[in-house]
Amino acid sequence: MMNHPPKRFAIAIVFCVASGGALAKTETCHPASKKQIAALFDRWNDSLKTGDPQKVVANYALRSILLATVSNKPRVSVEDKLDYFKHFLESKPVGTIDFRDIMIECNTAIDAGTYTFKFGDGSTVKARYTFTYVWDGHKWLITSHHSSKMPEGD
Score class of each variant (00 low, 15 high):
L62N: 14
M150G: 01
S77C: 01
I65K: 07
D111R: 02
R63F: 11
H30F: 10
R100G: 00
Y84C: 05
V94C: 02
K92E: 14
C16W: 03
D136H: 01
G120V: 14
K73T: 14
V70A: 10
T143R: 06
H138T: 13
K118T: 15
V125K: 12
S123T: 15
I13P: 05
D98K: 13
D80Y: 00
A58Y: 01
K118I: 05
E79H: 00
G153S: 12
I65H: 02
N45M: 03
G51W: 05
F85Q: 11
S71W: 01
K73N: 12
H138R: 08
N59Q: 15
E152L: 03
V94L: 06
K139E: 09
S144P: 06
L89G: 08
D80E: 14
V78A: 09
P53D: 05
D101P: 01
F131N: 14
D42C: 01
L48C: 12
F131A: 03
S147I: 06
Y115D: 06
E27W: 09
W140N: 03
K86A: 11
L23K: 09
I37M: 10
L89F: 09
F117N: 06
R43H: 09
F131Q: 05
H4M: 13
L82R: 02
T116I: 14
L40D: 05
F119W: 07
K139H: 07
Y133F: 12
V76D: 01
H30E: 15
S123D: 09
T69Q: 07
K7Q: 07
Y60I: 00
D101V: 06
K126F: 02
N72P: 08
V17M: 12
D42I: 03
F15A: 15
Y60L: 00
H30V: 08
I11R: 13
A24S: 11
W135E: 08
S77R: 02
K126I: 03
T124E: 15
T132K: 04
G51S: 06
P53K: 07
K118M: 13
M1K: 10
H138N: 14
N72G: 12
R128E: 13
F99R: 14
N3P: 04
N59M: 10
A32I: 01
V134A: 13
M1P: 10
H4V: 10
I110N: 14
F15V: 15
K55S: 11
A127L: 13
R75K: 11
R100V: 02
S144H: 13
A10R: 14
W140G: 05
H87P: 08
L40M: 11
A109K: 05
D111V: 00
H30W: 02
F117C: 04
T124L: 06
C16K: 04
K34W: 00
H145N: 15
T124S: 15
Q54W: 00
T28D: 02
H87F: 10
T132L: 01
L23C: 07
D80C: 00
A58G: 05
M2P: 13
Y84I: 07
D136L: 05
V134W: 02
A32L: 02
L82V: 05
D111I: 03
E27T: 13
P53M: 07
F99E: 15
T114Q: 15
A127F: 03
Y60H: 01
I13R: 12
